[in-house]
Design a protein around this nucleic acid. Sequence first.
DNA 1: GAATTCATGTAACTTGTTACATGATTTA
DNA 2: TAAATCATGTAACAAGTTACATGAATTC
Lengths: 196, 196
Amino acid sequence: MSLPHAILGLLTYQPMTGYDLKHHFDHSVNYFWSAQQSQIYRELAALEGKGYVSSCIEPQEGRPDRKVYSIIAAGKRELQEWLERFPQVLTTPYREELLVHIFFASRLPLAELKFQLQRFIRERQEQLAAYTAVDGMISDPVKIPGHPDESFYWRLTLKRGFAQARADIGWAEECIRDIEKQEGLRETGDERSEER
Amino acid sequence: MSLPHAILGLLTYQPMTGYDLKHHFDHSVNYFWSAQQSQIYRELAALEGKGYVSSCIEPQEGRPDRKVYSIIAAGKRELQEWLERFPQVLTTPYREELLVHIFFASRLPLAELKFQLQRFIRERQEQLAAYTAVDGMISDPVKIPGHPDESFYWRLTLKRGFAQARADIGWAEECIRDIEKQEGLRETGDERSEER
DNA sequence: GAATTCATGTAACTTGTTACATGATTTA
DNA sequence: TAAATCATGTAACAAGTTACATGAATTC
């Protein structure tokens, strides 16, 4: 499971509250590991229970007190060990709703499927634009004491986003071409779909 | 949620037991929606409770009785409505552990990261080979009464697998080249990534 | 006056995973 | 003799989602 380790990783940058962590998630890790606010609070409590992080309360006036979490030695060790154990793609379950729709799409008109794929292409193009914006923001090297430039690694994950989005656009375009060929076949070969 | 609809979809091909469904999952839907056996049984009970499927028991000798589920009218309606509501990519949470490792990989030697990416490339190449095998198996048109050739749609989902795997291989190769450049930089330029 | 931000969570629920239980038959 | 296949599940747990509750300060 990645959530506790993503939290531990972010806490190596600086001590943070659950609220701060949620913001960091939404602007970086979220692209490949999303988490709800309530999940973060629950996980922080679990991490504290395991002795991986410690917390201290900073009182505030007119605002709720801040409960600031810091990663401690045992947490750093746990993070390190986890980081070294890369997941195997072949055994990790994959789930993508879009493909379930397409798998059973014989129950939809070809024109509808084509329309949905066109919409998909636009969505992925928007994501490409968003990735470009993020890329601009991490253009400067980011130094964390004791480690080489973090932005180098962040950019590797971003490039994956680009590669996947581009592949999806190419795939969806090919699907649309296939559908258009299929439409031609069904018009000429199958008299039933002609009458309407 | 796709699990109930994937089950309903498979039941349109033919009435099946939970056990049969698991096999169908493992050889098709599994590539984009995986499910445990226990999850399928639980979901079948829920679908029956909602009146989307009906079951009848076929007694057997020397083997456990078969509880065969069939999709009924309300289930077909539910499936149809769901199929028409395609998911939005932008709002569906994405989770991929590999990228969490890479995001925080400044804590690993570059050589180790390179090794893991090479392993990743091999895994994706194996998947490409597996997809090619599946493609061969669905080369003949598959007819379900009342619908056009199913294999056309199955092949669209397969093509997505190919596109993503190829994109991943290209991405990982680019990462390795970036890492090798970085290795050169750290040896010559940057004297020390200081410790503290 | 309404919505958003800051900051804490809890509770209930759904979905996914892992382990267990049964027991005859077939295959290695 | 061990394992895999056929076929049913249940139980416990882990992880993810959604809704709710509090309440001052700030911005639209």
